[in-house]
Design a protein around this nucleic acid. Structure first.
Lengths: 212, 212
DNA sequence: GCGTGAATTACACAGTTGTATAACAAGGCC
DNA sequence: GGCCTTGTTATACAACTGTGTAATTCACGC
């Protein structure tokens, strides 16, 4: 007489992944308030109770989603170096260009990021995630800068500056795309990073792009 | 027999101001989700029903609060020019330094800003507010750049770049203050804006500061 | 095949949310 | 000083929130 919904047992990893992915999609679509336990579980194809079987509470799921988002963005910027030439100037130029253009610089990604930023001040664990991912990205940038033929005297300062420039343009390009022409932000990011580092990143990028 | 709460009638402007201020304080303290109609009205010293007497719905109050926040931040950056000398290099340096240091660069302000950013994609009116305030700030910066003795060839590009740098450092300094030494971000912002514009903003700022 | 443990569903619950509506009272006007 | 507009309170309501708990049913070991 019961018409209980049939289901399949899945691995813990699979279920956690599905729930995190569903949460991110919902936050992207409708802001943090749209990611309710019921909406998340429905999108993941399970019932609400299961969330608390894999996460102690909703906060923990939120943290997991934030970590996943930041890891994704860093690895997307890094992916462009996978099959890049070994010339450090070209590598830096490609990395910077990738960071201020899609899919890294994307309205959905920025909105997602903003949704989590509000939690940083209140949740020490979220703050820790932020520190690790921010410093991780910056250190990556710094290592690219230190590999340059004529590295700057204070690579840490240079990395902070370029990181600030990248983050600002990343955000502005995603939030107000109609205010910029195609590739304008890439050009600006390369020109100004070049001015900061006293090298010509723009032509290095252009010649590399024309090679294909 | 009724012990109905006594009250005073106030002007529409006063009530709207109080409600907006209460909403901003709550978002700052506990994120967007803390700004419920009941919490807002309690903090403003009224009952919940009154909100809908002054705002058609909660969304409208949210929009008003966002507009107010952005106006405040721009005017705070601008305030430093009030009694600044007429030397355009000094004026630009003061403006940039103010934008990446308290009270403009502040964890509360950044968290508030992030809380609203999530709405930009969904709410066209919020998007319009964002466009106006972003372009307003950038145009201000561009006018300061154009006033320089040797203005750059493309002031728009320079303004976009400096704005990006400022926004990035504004955000990073507020979100992870322990990662930077005192005045480090001001120095970096001035050095790198100077590199982009080919002028020496850092010494202009330092000599101006030592004048007092 | 068949038990058995655990993944999953189903349901309940108390609290909160935004909103609608009616009763009330403050303060200006004559 | 009494009326009348309307700012303000009070209360109701249905929808939704996160969470706790018991009942089911899947899938694996034997």
């Amino acid at each position: 007489m019961k018409d209980r919904r049939p289901y399949r047992r899945e691995s813990e990893e699979r279920r956690r992944d599905d729930l995190i992915a569903a949460a991110l999609e919902l936050v992207a679509e409708g802001g943090a308030k749209a990611a309710t336990v019921r909406a998340i579980s429905e999108k993941a194809g399970v019932t609400a109770g299961l969330i608390r079987h894999y996460f102690a509470n909703k906060e923990e799921l939120t943290r997991a989603a934030y970590t996943r988002l930041m890891d994704q963005m860093t690895s997307q910027s890094l992916a462009v170096l996978q099959d890049a030439p070994s010339d450090p100037v070209i590598r830096l130029a490609l990395f910077i260009a990738a960071s201020v253009s899609p899919p890294v610089s994307d309205p959905v990604a920025v909105a997602l990021w903003a949704a989590f930023v509000q939690e940083l001040r209140r949740d020490p664990e979220m703050h820790a995630v932020h520190r690790v991912t921010y410093l991780g990205f910056r250190d990556l940038l710094q290592s690219l800068i230190e590999a340059l033929p004529a590295p700057p005297a204070d690579p840490r300062r240079s990395a902070i500056a370029c990181n600030g420039l990248i983050d600002g343009l990343w955000m502005e390009g995603a939030l107000l795309p109609e205010a910029f022409e195609k590739d304008e932000l890439i050009d600006i990011a390369l020109d100004c990073s070049g001015a900061i580092l006293h090298i010509d990143l723009a032509t290095a990028y252009r010649t590399e792009r024309e090679k294909t």
